[in-house]
Amino acid sequence: MDSKRRDFLKIAGLTAIAGIAAPSAFNTLLKGEAIASAGQAAAGGHGAAAPTGKRYGMVIDVKKFTENPGLAEQCVSACHTIHNVPDFGNRKDEVKWIWIESYEHTFPTESQYKRPDALKDMPILTLCNHCDNPPCVRACPTKATYKKKDGIVGMDYHRCIGCRFCMAACPYGARSFNWRDPRGKDANGQPFIKAENPKYPTRMRGVVEKCNFCTERLAIGQIPACVEVAAQTKALVFGDMNDPNSEISQVLKTSFTIQRNPAIGTHPSLFYII
Protein backbone atom coordinates (compact mmCIF):
# COMPACT_ATOMS: atom_id res chain seq x y z
CA MET A 1 0.00 0.00 0.00
CA ASP A 2 1.50 3.35 -0.91
CA SER A 3 1.87 5.89 1.81
CA LYS A 4 -0.72 8.35 0.48
CA ARG A 5 -3.40 5.69 0.41
CA ARG A 6 -2.50 4.61 3.91
CA ASP A 7 -2.63 8.20 5.16
CA PHE A 8 -6.01 8.66 3.55
CA LEU A 9 -7.40 5.56 5.24
CA LYS A 10 -6.06 6.70 8.59
CA ILE A 11 -7.74 10.07 8.27
CA ALA A 12 -10.98 8.50 7.05
CA GLY A 13 -10.99 6.13 10.02
CA LEU A 14 -10.37 8.91 12.52
CA THR A 15 -13.10 11.04 10.98
CA ALA A 16 -15.56 8.18 11.24
CA ILE A 17 -14.74 7.67 14.93
CA ALA A 18 -15.09 11.40 15.59
CA GLY A 19 -18.42 11.44 13.77
CA ILE A 20 -19.80 8.64 15.91
CA ALA A 21 -18.46 10.06 19.17
CA ALA A 22 -19.36 13.73 18.63
CA PRO A 23 -23.13 13.69 19.25
CA SER A 24 -22.83 11.71 22.48
CA ALA A 25 -19.96 13.93 23.64
CA PHE A 26 -22.05 16.99 22.89
CA ASN A 27 -24.96 15.59 24.87
CA THR A 28 -22.70 14.97 27.85
CA LEU A 29 -21.48 18.52 27.57
CA LEU A 30 -24.98 19.95 27.74
CA LYS A 31 -26.15 17.28 30.18
CA GLY A 32 -29.27 16.68 28.13
CA GLU A 33 -30.45 20.18 28.86
CA ALA A 34 -30.52 21.07 25.17
CA ILE A 35 -33.27 18.54 24.68
CA ALA A 36 -35.19 19.71 27.73
CA SER A 37 -35.09 23.36 26.71
CA ALA A 38 -36.09 22.53 23.15
CA GLY A 39 -39.23 20.91 24.51
CA GLN A 40 -39.99 23.94 26.61
CA ALA A 41 -39.44 26.43 23.84
CA ALA A 42 -42.15 24.64 21.87
CA ALA A 43 -44.56 25.11 24.77
CA GLY A 44 -44.12 28.82 24.20
CA GLY A 45 -42.28 31.43 26.20
CA HIS A 46 -42.59 32.18 29.87
CA GLY A 47 -44.34 30.04 32.38
CA ALA A 48 -43.23 26.85 30.65
CA ALA A 49 -42.24 24.26 33.21
CA ALA A 50 -40.35 20.98 33.18
CA PRO A 51 -42.67 18.33 31.78
CA THR A 52 -42.75 16.01 34.78
CA GLY A 53 -41.80 15.76 38.44
CA LYS A 54 -41.91 18.25 41.24
CA ARG A 55 -40.80 21.78 40.49
CA TYR A 56 -40.86 24.35 43.24
CA GLY A 57 -41.59 27.92 42.31
CA MET A 58 -42.62 31.20 43.86
CA VAL A 59 -44.97 34.01 42.95
CA ILE A 60 -44.08 37.44 44.32
CA ASP A 61 -47.01 39.84 44.45
CA VAL A 62 -45.15 43.13 44.48
CA LYS A 63 -48.20 45.33 45.21
CA LYS A 64 -48.80 43.59 48.53
CA PHE A 65 -45.38 44.70 49.73
CA THR A 66 -46.27 48.32 49.01
CA GLU A 67 -49.57 47.84 50.86
CA ASN A 68 -47.73 46.35 53.86
CA PRO A 69 -44.74 48.60 54.56
CA GLY A 70 -41.93 46.78 56.33
CA LEU A 71 -43.03 43.34 55.17
CA ALA A 72 -40.23 42.99 52.64
CA GLU A 73 -37.65 43.89 55.29
CA GLN A 74 -39.14 41.25 57.62
CA CYS A 75 -38.81 38.59 54.92
CA VAL A 76 -35.16 39.48 54.36
CA SER A 77 -34.40 39.52 58.04
CA ALA A 78 -36.12 36.16 58.70
CA CYS A 79 -34.13 34.50 55.93
CA HIS A 80 -30.80 36.00 56.88
CA THR A 81 -31.25 35.17 60.57
CA ILE A 82 -32.22 31.56 59.98
CA HIS A 83 -29.40 30.97 57.49
CA ASN A 84 -26.64 32.73 59.43
CA VAL A 85 -26.02 35.22 56.63
CA PRO A 86 -23.27 37.57 57.82
CA ASP A 87 -23.61 41.35 57.75
CA PHE A 88 -20.29 42.99 56.90
CA GLY A 89 -21.78 46.45 56.71
CA ASN A 90 -20.37 47.32 53.29
CA ARG A 91 -21.32 46.75 49.66
CA LYS A 92 -17.98 45.29 48.61
CA ASP A 93 -18.07 42.28 50.96
CA GLU A 94 -21.86 41.99 50.99
CA VAL A 95 -23.46 38.55 51.34
CA LYS A 96 -27.22 38.33 50.69
CA TRP A 97 -29.70 35.60 49.87
CA ILE A 98 -32.80 37.73 49.43
CA TRP A 99 -32.91 41.48 49.21
CA ILE A 100 -35.00 44.49 48.26
CA GLU A 101 -34.38 45.89 44.81
CA SER A 102 -35.91 48.64 42.70
CA TYR A 103 -38.01 47.91 39.63
CA GLU A 104 -35.44 49.27 37.18
CA HIS A 105 -32.67 47.06 38.56
CA THR A 106 -34.81 43.93 38.92
CA PHE A 107 -36.16 44.22 35.40
CA PRO A 108 -33.50 46.10 33.40
CA THR A 109 -34.60 44.30 30.24
CA GLU A 110 -38.18 45.59 30.54
CA SER A 111 -39.01 48.99 29.14
CA GLN A 112 -38.45 51.77 31.66
CA TYR A 113 -40.23 54.29 29.45
CA LYS A 114 -43.40 55.96 30.73
CA ARG A 115 -43.77 53.71 33.72
CA PRO A 116 -46.21 54.56 36.51
CA ASP A 117 -44.69 56.63 39.33
CA ALA A 118 -45.70 53.99 41.84
CA LEU A 119 -43.05 51.67 40.45
CA LYS A 120 -40.26 53.98 41.48
CA ASP A 121 -40.34 53.23 45.21
CA MET A 122 -41.84 49.78 45.00
CA PRO A 123 -39.82 47.32 47.10
CA ILE A 124 -39.21 44.21 45.00
CA LEU A 125 -37.88 41.07 46.65
CA THR A 126 -35.04 39.56 44.70
CA LEU A 127 -33.49 36.14 45.24
CA CYS A 128 -32.12 33.13 43.40
CA ASN A 129 -34.43 32.23 40.51
CA HIS A 130 -33.79 28.49 40.83
CA CYS A 131 -33.67 28.32 37.05
CA ASP A 132 -34.76 25.20 35.26
CA ASN A 133 -31.78 25.69 32.96
CA PRO A 134 -29.26 27.25 35.35
CA PRO A 135 -26.08 28.79 33.82
CA CYS A 136 -24.35 28.61 37.23
CA VAL A 137 -24.69 24.82 37.34
CA ARG A 138 -23.27 24.58 33.82
CA ALA A 139 -20.29 26.73 34.81
CA CYS A 140 -19.33 25.11 38.14
CA PRO A 141 -16.20 22.97 37.67
CA THR A 142 -16.77 20.76 40.74
CA LYS A 143 -20.55 20.20 40.87
CA ALA A 144 -20.53 22.26 44.08
CA THR A 145 -23.67 23.87 42.72
CA TYR A 146 -26.24 21.50 41.28
CA LYS A 147 -29.88 21.20 40.35
CA LYS A 148 -32.03 18.93 42.47
CA LYS A 149 -34.95 16.85 41.20
CA ASP A 150 -37.45 19.23 42.81
CA GLY A 151 -36.05 22.16 40.79
CA ILE A 152 -34.02 23.72 43.61
CA VAL A 153 -30.51 24.85 42.71
CA GLY A 154 -28.35 23.87 45.69
CA MET A 155 -24.87 24.67 46.95
CA ASP A 156 -22.30 22.39 48.59
CA TYR A 157 -20.21 24.78 50.70
CA HIS A 158 -17.72 22.02 51.42
CA ARG A 159 -16.91 21.28 47.83
CA CYS A 160 -16.84 24.85 46.46
CA ILE A 161 -13.31 25.94 45.54
CA GLY A 162 -14.25 29.61 45.35
CA CYS A 163 -13.46 30.17 41.66
CA ARG A 164 -16.58 32.39 41.34
CA PHE A 165 -17.32 31.14 37.82
CA CYS A 166 -20.95 30.70 38.95
CA MET A 167 -21.08 34.38 39.93
CA ALA A 168 -19.96 35.42 36.47
CA ALA A 169 -22.49 33.00 35.00
CA CYS A 170 -25.53 34.04 37.07
CA PRO A 171 -27.60 36.54 35.04
CA TYR A 172 -29.51 37.66 38.15
CA GLY A 173 -26.69 38.62 40.55
CA ALA A 174 -28.09 36.13 43.06
CA ARG A 175 -24.79 34.75 44.29
CA SER A 176 -22.52 36.04 47.05
CA PHE A 177 -18.93 35.19 47.88
CA ASN A 178 -17.41 35.15 51.36
CA TRP A 179 -14.63 37.64 50.70
CA ARG A 180 -13.65 37.36 54.37
CA ASP A 181 -14.39 35.09 57.30
CA PRO A 182 -18.15 35.30 58.05
CA ARG A 183 -17.56 33.72 61.46
CA GLY A 184 -15.26 36.60 62.43
CA LYS A 185 -15.80 39.92 64.20
CA ASP A 186 -15.53 43.52 63.02
CA ALA A 187 -13.12 46.12 64.38
CA ASN A 188 -15.44 46.81 67.35
CA GLY A 189 -15.62 43.16 68.31
CA GLN A 190 -19.17 42.72 66.94
CA PRO A 191 -19.67 39.34 65.23
CA PHE A 192 -20.76 39.47 61.56
CA ILE A 193 -23.43 36.89 62.37
CA LYS A 194 -25.46 38.65 65.06
CA ALA A 195 -27.16 35.60 66.57
CA GLU A 196 -26.00 32.24 65.29
CA ASN A 197 -28.73 29.69 64.48
CA PRO A 198 -27.32 26.28 65.43
CA LYS A 199 -29.79 24.52 63.12
CA TYR A 200 -28.09 25.76 59.97
CA PRO A 201 -24.35 25.64 59.26
CA THR A 202 -22.27 28.81 59.09
CA ARG A 203 -19.94 29.07 56.11
CA MET A 204 -16.22 29.50 55.90
CA ARG A 205 -14.47 32.20 53.95
CA GLY A 206 -13.72 31.68 50.26
CA VAL A 207 -16.94 29.92 49.25
CA VAL A 208 -20.02 31.05 47.33
CA GLU A 209 -23.52 30.97 48.81
CA LYS A 210 -27.07 31.90 47.83
CA CYS A 211 -30.75 31.26 48.54
CA ASN A 212 -31.55 27.54 48.78
CA PHE A 213 -35.36 27.91 48.75
CA CYS A 214 -35.17 26.71 52.38
CA THR A 215 -34.54 23.16 51.26
CA GLU A 216 -33.67 22.25 54.87
CA ARG A 217 -37.09 23.48 56.04
CA LEU A 218 -38.96 21.78 53.19
CA ALA A 219 -37.30 18.52 54.27
CA ILE A 220 -39.08 18.71 57.64
CA GLY A 221 -42.41 19.86 56.23
CA GLN A 222 -42.03 23.59 56.77
CA ILE A 223 -42.43 26.31 54.14
CA PRO A 224 -39.63 28.73 53.24
CA ALA A 225 -38.93 31.34 55.92
CA CYS A 226 -39.79 34.36 53.76
CA VAL A 227 -43.06 32.76 52.66
CA GLU A 228 -43.96 32.03 56.27
CA VAL A 229 -43.42 35.70 57.20
CA ALA A 230 -45.62 36.84 54.33
CA ALA A 231 -48.23 34.08 54.80
CA GLN A 232 -51.07 36.30 56.06
CA THR A 233 -50.88 38.71 53.15
CA LYS A 234 -50.27 36.03 50.49
CA ALA A 235 -47.61 38.33 49.07
CA LEU A 236 -45.44 35.26 48.48
CA VAL A 237 -46.94 32.04 47.16
CA PHE A 238 -44.71 29.00 47.16
CA GLY A 239 -45.34 25.46 45.93
CA ASP A 240 -45.05 22.78 43.29
CA MET A 241 -45.75 24.35 39.91
CA ASN A 242 -46.25 20.94 38.33
CA ASP A 243 -49.09 20.03 40.68
CA PRO A 244 -52.20 21.42 38.96
CA ASN A 245 -54.03 21.64 42.29
CA SER A 246 -51.39 23.60 44.16
CA GLU A 247 -52.04 27.18 45.17
CA ILE A 248 -49.19 28.45 43.02
CA SER A 249 -50.59 26.70 39.94
CA GLN A 250 -53.93 28.43 40.53
CA VAL A 251 -52.25 31.82 40.89
CA LEU A 252 -50.16 31.30 37.77
CA LYS A 253 -53.26 30.26 35.83
CA THR A 254 -55.30 33.30 36.85
CA SER A 255 -52.78 36.16 37.10
CA PHE A 256 -50.49 37.84 34.63
CA THR A 257 -46.95 37.32 35.85
CA ILE A 258 -43.53 38.26 34.52
CA GLN A 259 -40.12 36.69 34.97
CA ARG A 260 -36.72 38.34 35.09
CA ASN A 261 -35.02 38.34 31.69
CA PRO A 262 -36.84 35.31 30.24
CA ALA A 263 -35.27 35.90 26.81
CA ILE A 264 -32.00 34.20 27.80
CA GLY A 265 -33.58 30.80 28.23
CA THR A 266 -32.85 30.16 31.89
CA HIS A 267 -36.50 29.38 32.75
CA PRO A 268 -36.66 31.01 36.20
CA SER A 269 -38.93 29.58 38.90
CA LEU A 270 -39.78 33.04 40.22
CA PHE A 271 -42.80 34.93 38.91
CA TYR A 272 -43.70 38.51 39.67
CA ILE A 273 -47.13 40.16 39.78
CA ILE A 274 -46.43 43.85 39.36
Binding site: T28, A139, P141
Partner: peptide, 8 residues
Protein backbone atom coordinates in the same frame (compact mmCIF):
# COMPACT_ATOMS: atom_id res chain seq x y z
CA UNK B 1 -15.28 15.62 40.71
CA UNK B 2 -14.72 15.94 36.96
CA UNK B 3 -17.48 18.04 35.41
CA UNK B 4 -17.49 17.97 31.59
CA UNK B 5 -20.22 20.60 31.32
CA UNK B 6 -17.93 23.21 32.91
CA UNK B 7 -15.55 25.08 30.63
CA UNK B 8 -13.20 25.57 33.59
Amino acid sequence: HPTPNSML
